[in-house]
Structures are given as structure tokens and as C-alpha cells.
Amino acid sequence: MHVLLIEDDELVGSGIRTGLELAGFTVDWFTRAADARVALANLDSDIVVLDLGLPDADGLTLLREWRAQGLIVPVLVLTARDAVADRVAGLQVGADDYLLKPFDLDELTARLQALLRRAAGRARPLIEHGPVCIDSSSRRVWRDGLEVGLTRREFALLQKLLNARGGILDIEQIKDSLYGLDTEVESNAINVHIYHLRRKLGTGLIRTVRGLGYRLGDPRDLDSGGLK
């Protein structure tokens, strides 16, 4: 899952980035509102963590802009201002959640996962797709009741496909979600991840849509296909 982090403080930002990466997120971090604007326009971020006190613009202004443009990406606001009025203002402008500094890394991770879950239209962290069962909070996967080990990227790809709920994802979207902006990605890296996922969980899990990208396969295909 790709997180766009906008935080002007170097110490705080580096800490959040490392913490989120440990929790399995792909993070791109910007310190200025101007950079964040460009990034969100070009990246397919799954969620945004926004600090309100930015040097070149108010975080709320940025958020208002995005919402006016029709961007519906979930936004979690970070701020040191704890007055109720500040919190209400943030939520009214279009923030989906609110976390007061200083916060606990576990809480930040849990809230981000909850926001992602809700954005995908689910209330529970447990997802069942045919014989495959996924716990997004503990990042564990089972097939037919047996736990299957996935790498961080494989899990992120699986989660991305599940959250798309049958919609088609193109290569760029998958790349953003798995690697963000900075990492140089080899052209066949995504294919490799898809190959491994199919091998571990069943060929019917991911369908290739020619010329467009990939989407989640029908659960019944998984039942019949089984493991080879």
C-alpha cells in the first residue's frame, strides 16, 4: 500500500517513514506542500498522511484543494494543535482521521489500515476470497486453512488487488503502490510478483486483462484451479 507522507520536520518525517515501512507500507515523503501537490497528481497513492504545519502552505488549504478537485484518497491529518476547533476544522475540510502529536507508531499504523479497509468498503480486517483468507492487520495469509508466507511486496500487491474489488489495475498503479517514486523498478518486477502470488495461492487468483493490466480472479476459479 502506498502512503504519501507530507511532514516538514526532518526528524519526525524520517521516523514515520521508517515506522510505516516496517509495517509494510511503501512510503514517499515530502516536506513541502508544493512537492506534495505534484506527487499526488502523478502518483496513485492509497492513503495520505498530512501534517498541518507546512512551511509554504497550510495543510488544510492543501486538503481543501484536493477535495475540490474531487480526489477521494483517504487523508489522515497529523497535528500538534489539540484544540477541538482545530480538529473539527480538519475533519470538516475533508480529513478522514486525525492524530495528535506525539502519537504511537502502532496507533498510526492501525488507523491507516482501518482507513484503507473502510475505503475498500470493509469493516473487518479479515478478507475471504474463495479459499484464500487475508488478515490485513497482522499481514498473514491462509489458503485452505494453511498459512502461506508472502513477501512484503507480494502481500502489498495482493492487498491492492483485493481493495480494487475486481477493478482493473494497470502496471503504473501497481508500481506506485509497491515501489513509490524513488525506487528504480525493473520492467518485469511486477510480473515476477504476480507469478509468485499465482504459484503460492492459485493461478486463478489474478487474471491478466490484455493491454490494460490485471484484476482479481473469480473465487470459483480458485476453487476449481487449486494448487498445482
Binding site: G19, A80, F103
Partner: peptide, 16 residues
């Protein structure tokens, strides 16, 4: 507000 920011940095890195 000014004290919360360094506090956040400390807490985050200690947790890390």
C-alpha cells in the same frame, strides 16, 4: 505546539 514536535520525533525514534 512547539514542544509537541520534538516530543513526537523522540517518541517515534525511540519506538523505532
Amino acid at each position: 505546539h512547539e514542544l509537541r514536535t520534538p516530543l513526537t520525533a523522540i517518541k517515534t525514534h525511540v519506538q523505532l
